[in-house]
Simulated assay, not measured.
Amino acid sequence: MGTNLADFEDHPFPYGTLTIESHVSPQFIIFNAGQKLVKIVDPDALAAANAHILNIFHKIDRTIILYARWTNVEPPIEWLNALPPPAHAPPSHSSQAPTEAQCELK
C-alpha cells in the first residue's frame, strides 16, 4: 500500500463494504470489554451515548454478566439495579454492517 489516494478504498458509513479480519478469539474481546465495562459507574449514560447501536443495553448487560461469570466477580450494583433505557426507534443508519450476522445472546 502506498501513499497515493488511488491506493485506498472509500467505505462510507454504515460501512457495508468494509471487511475487518481479526485473529483475536471472541472470548478475549468479550473479556477485555468486560474489564472496561465493569469500571463504568453510569450504565444509562453509556447506553444513551451509544443509542444508535441496536440493543446496546442488552449487549452491554450480557457482556458484563458473562465477564462476571468467567471471573467470579460480582457485577457492579449499578448494573444490577439499572433498568434498560426506553426503546428508541433506530436512526436511518446503523453502526452494524448489513452483512453482519444478527444473533441472539442466550
Rank of each mutant, 00 (worst) to 15 (best):
H93C: 01
I65T: 00
E100T: 13
K59V: 07
N55C: 06
A6T: 13
I64T: 04
P12K: 10
P75V: 08
A89S: 02
D7V: 00
A68I: 01
H11T: 14
A33P: 01
K59L: 14
D10S: 15
E74Y: 03
E100D: 14
V73G: 03
V24F: 13
E78Y: 06
A82N: 06
I29S: 15
E104R: 03
L80Q: 13
S95P: 06
S94K: 08
T19D: 10
W70V: 11
L83I: 10
S25V: 09
H88D: 00
N55G: 01
P98Y: 03
T17Q: 07
T19E: 11
N32V: 09
P75G: 07
P12N: 14
Y15Q: 14
Q102R: 13
A45C: 06
P26T: 14
T63K: 01
L18Q: 15
A51V: 11
C103G: 12
R69M: 01
T63L: 03
P26G: 10
I40E: 03
Q27M: 13
A6K: 09
P90F: 00
P85T: 03
P86I: 02
F8C: 02
Q102T: 14
D7L: 07
E9T: 05
S94V: 04
N72G: 10
T99K: 15
P85E: 00
C103E: 12
A89T: 07
H52I: 09
I53R: 08
P86E: 04
P14Q: 09
V38T: 10
P91G: 08
N55Q: 13
P75D: 02
H11I: 13
N4W: 00
I64R: 04
C103N: 11
F8D: 06
L54E: 10
F13D: 06
T63D: 02
S94N: 05
G34K: 14
T99W: 15
V24Y: 07
V73E: 11
K39D: 06
F31E: 10
E9S: 12
R62A: 11
I29C: 14
M1N: 11
S25Q: 14
Y67A: 04
P26Q: 13
Q27Y: 13
A33T: 04
Q96S: 11
K39S: 03
E74W: 01
N81E: 10
G34M: 12
P14K: 04
K36G: 01
S95M: 08
A49H: 11
Q35T: 06
T63E: 02
C103T: 11
W79D: 06
I56Y: 08
Q96Y: 15
I40C: 05
E9W: 01
P12C: 12
L83K: 13
A101V: 09
A68Y: 02
A68E: 14
D10C: 15
P90W: 04
L80C: 08
V38S: 09
T17H: 04
L83F: 14
L54P: 10
I53K: 06
A48Q: 07
G16D: 15
L66A: 10
Y15W: 15
T99H: 15
N50G: 01
